[in-house]
Amino acid sequence: MSTMIATRDAYGEVLAELGAENADVVVLDADLSGSTKTAVFARKFPERFFNMGIAEANMIGTAAGLAAAGKIPFASTFAIFAVGRAWEQMRQSVAYPKANVKIVATHSGVTVGEDGGSHQSVEDIAITRAVPNMTVIVPADGEETKQAIRAAAAYKGPVYVRLGRNKVPTIFGNDYRFTIGKGVQLREGTDLTFVATGLMTAQALAAAEELAKGGISARVVHLATIKPLDEEIIVAAARETGAIVTAEEHSIVGGLGGAVAECLGERFPAPLVRVGIKDRFGTSGKAEELLEYFGLMPEDLVVAAREVLARK
């Protein structure tokens, strides 16, 4: 846990690299290119960058048209607008035809911070996951973001990638190999398993460290791909550790927690506690304050672990 980098910054970097490597990569933004970091690409490849103005529905539809004519479009804005405002465009123009469009949204979750609940998307995993043909990826750090963006570009079909505004600790080294649809075990453990995604994976690692001090052995599984779900790693965790705590910076309704609950319910029922936003909207505040306010800190995961252990 040395360097800190925001996943959106990693996105800006890797997108510019991809632009140099593949002339078919085009980028669209909706007046937020400075924030989403697509501006890095725009400066290098102005002829392949399209600012669509504050019109997200048209941006997603235009991306679908570019894909239909052979391009690999990356369309970016904040998560609430990419998925919220343009949900049906994503469904009809992108997912239904299986268009080769990459929707990469930044500023997801409550760590958007001061802008408040209007701008804090806590539902986007649930509503992208529900759409057939969609692949949904929530990277944990800069390195994984870069690899996930490259994997999305190489994959033929619609992909939603959920990124954040703030700096997050680096978890993965360059020896890490991201694969769409594969979870990764980051820490061995026998008493329970944290299944975490996005920035909550770092929190889960810290919680596992804390639990170890009290003699509790917590496994940590990082699921960057929420869809398709790596059911095997979840079922194995339930079988081998007997209890699961999910952790996401998203509503506990329909996101990672929902997906894991569906999997366990059908395949290996086990005690489960879902840590996330408890069916509420966000609010203004500093990102760090909001992680505390919404119960997304390592100590909250420790409490959840004790709760789930009591139900074993």
Partner: peptide, 11 residues
């Protein structure tokens, strides 16, 4: 939704 897609193709 169609005109947006037509735009994208034209681009």
């Amino acid at each position: 939704q169609g005109l947006s897609m037509a735009n994208g193709m034209a681009m």
